[in-house]
Each structure stands twice: as structure tokens, then as C-alpha cells.
Design a protein around this nucleic acid. Sequence first.
DNA 1: GCCCTTCTACCACTAAAATGCTATTGTTTT
DNA 2: AAAACAATAGCATTTTAGTGGTAGAAGGGC
Lengths: 208, 208
Amino acid sequence: MISVLLVEDKADYRNALKLILDNTPGFCCVADYCDAESCMNDNTYNNADVALIDIQLPGISGIQLVSFFKEKNPALLCLMCTAYEDGDNVFSALQAGAHGYILKSDAPSKILEAIVEVVNGGSPMSSQVARKVIEAFHRPAQVEYSLTNREEEILQHLSKGLLYKEIAFRLSISTETVRRHCFNIYDKLHVNNRTEALNKFFGKKPHR
Amino acid sequence: MISVLLVEDKADYRNALKLILDNTPGFCCVADYCDAESCMNDNTYNNADVALIDIQLPGISGIQLVSFFKEKNPALLCLMCTAYEDGDNVFSALQAGAHGYILKSDAPSKILEAIVEVVNGGSPMSSQVARKVIEAFHRPAQVEYSLTNREEEILQHLSKGLLYKEIAFRLSISTETVRRHCFNIYDKLHVNNRTEALNKFFGKKPHR
DNA sequence: GCCCTTCTACCACTAAAATGCTATTGTTTT
DNA sequence: AAAACAATAGCATTTTAGTGGTAGAAGGGC
């Protein structure tokens, strides 16, 4: 028996889903809310397997609700529900911790299928959104900056936010040498400071 | 016309695919190889739109080939091909830069569909593999550090490696104010420098 | 009205980082 | 043996970052 939690502002759609869930063997609707706030103030989310959440909710968005669930009950599987396939929003939701999504235009049978899929360890989503996820996920091609082993080692320590003197102590070399290595690193990477070097070497887009 | 490159060691399967591609309007097979090495030594990969690559190749693996393509011709779309759905390998391939994958057991029509899908910006993959990708992609739960909007904005700029004065210029405020914001940020995050703040706020493990 | 937070700003001081130059030791390549 | 590179290290200088104190203007909440 899969317990589903509904958070959807449109009463018609919410009630329809509830009816379908409660009348399909193997499914049940443990609770339903018309907004995120009332759901957060309740604690039914601890008794559900899957949460079906509308992305566009009045007030606190569905994406924020996912973040909330992720903290309060990480085991809860979040399935997003959107009217139309809004790439960016769906993407943000997945990034926040959602496990898949369905379109409101999908047939009830497809929605039930998606719920089962999520429970079975899948992540139902369209191929287009999958691409966005994949791309954010790709490791940027190693552009081979030919740093020496020692330089990479230094960079590892730099990435932790350590001071030169702390790195020097850990590696049992002088602060001057650490300094020198850094300078050489920045030179090779064509950057001017620690943060740029880390972004470049570890291939990070600065930040979302 | 979609130009496809084949890298597949099983001659039967490779020839069959080639035949299908060359005899389907809108598709053509620009080259085919039985291993990664010979493909890397040629330069046909510059003339293809999509590369269909077997994951299990003798010698250099399909995953390594993807990394190679990513560096040499980042525009080439890599579609992996596997005999059975080996989660870890497929996952690694996607991480290395592949855009989707198909199963050898899929019908020819489905394979052609997947190729079109990739060209159209999609990422064909199973729901199970999508889940693995999604999970690797999830941001760790934000521990809510209650930074103000302005402080988060400053942090965004810090993450690019900008100097205080550069941030000040972009936000049209004084350097002193940027300085002050940073101090407040470090205070709230209980850290002592930029790198630590970035690691903590953006929830990153220092580095692999 | 008053309190509290946020954003703004200046000053002063210390610590650290970034940029130069030079130089020794060892290892590897040619 | 010479040349090239890697790692080490010292010194000097300038710039930037980090830590304090203080304080005014704008906005929300009580």
C-alpha cells in the first residue's frame, strides 16, 4: 500500500486525484492540502511514502516545500506536478530534492504509474528535463592544466580554506614554498586568486 | 540528415546498425569502428552529430572514449549502448559526458527514436538510471543559515573570485559595505575566510 | 512612538595573500 | 655533461582580506 500526500491548490484537480488514489487498490491518500504552509504545520508528511506536489503554489512554492521535506523527512519521495513542462522550475525542483515529476495533462493511469516508479527507485521525467539534469551533472572536460602532483596537493588544501601557514605545517615545508607553489598554480591556470583557481581547476560554474 | 558514428566491437550488431542507418531517410552512418583506438586515430568524429558507443569495448572503454570526444569535439552527442542495464557503468558514462543511452535489446525503431531525441536536446535514459543521476545531483539539505538576500547576493559574487572592489562596483555600493557584509556572513556561518564560507554555504565537500 | 533588522558607510589595524626576484638541491630527459 | 624541470626556501613590496568600533537611514513589527 503506497501512502500518498497531496499538495495542490486547485481544488478540482486535488479532489480528483484523491478520489482516484483512494479508489485504486494499493494506493491511499493520507492527507491533502491546498498550500504548503498548512502541510508544513501538520506532520502527516511523516506517514507518507510519496508526496505529490504542485510546483506553482500560492505563497511558499512547491520547490521550497521539497527543501522542507528533504530536511524533515528525507525518505519522503517527492513527485512534482506541473501544468506545463516548465524546464527551469522542474529543474530547480529536482535540484532541491524532488525525485521526478508528472504533467497534469497525463492520464490518471500514467500518474499512478509514475508513483509506482518512484517507489521502485525510478525517477520519472521527460527526456528534455533529463538533458538539463545531465548537463548540470557532467564533469567538465579535464582541460589538462599540467599541474605537478605537489601543486595539485596544494590545491586540495587550498580548497579547504586553509592558510598558507597551515598548509606549510601539514606538508612540513616552509610557508614561502607554499606561497611559491600557489603563485605557480595561478600562473598555469591564468587566474589571480584562490577562488578563481579552485573554480577553474575543479571545473565549477561559480554558483547557481 | 543526422550523421551517426558507430563504435561497437560486435560485428553483427555493428553491421546491422549501419545497414539500418544507411537505409533510413534522414540518417546516415559516417563511419564505424570495432574499437575506440582506431576511432580516436581517425578524425571522423568531427563530421558526426551523434556517436553510438558500446560501453564494453576491448581495450579503451566506451566511457573513456566519451571523455576523449568531450575534449576533442564537445558538440558531438554521445549515446551509449549496453547489452544489459548496468547501472554503474551507464552512470559513469553519463558523468563522463554521455547524453543518453539505449539498450541493445531495444527495437531498431526505438534506437532511431533515441537518436532523434538526443539531437532534439533530450536525454533518453531509463527511470532507474535517471534516479541515480538525480541523487548524485541533489544539493545537500540547506541547513538554513539565515543569510539575508543581500548577503546571499554578496556570496554569489564571492564565489566567482571577485575582489571586494569589483563586487562594490557591480552592486554600486562602497567597498567598505561589501567588507562589512562579508564579515557578517563569516560570522553567521562561523568561518574565517571566503573559501570556508563558500564550502559551507554551497554545501560542498572540499574536493574529491 | 520605539525597537529591531537590514543595508549602508567610514576609520583603523593586523593578518594574509599576491607578485616580484633570486637561488639551491635533486631528478629526469636529452 | 648539459639542459629542463620539480621542489624547496629566503626576502621585499604592494594589494587584498579579515577584525574591530561606530553610526545613520529605511523599513517592519509592537
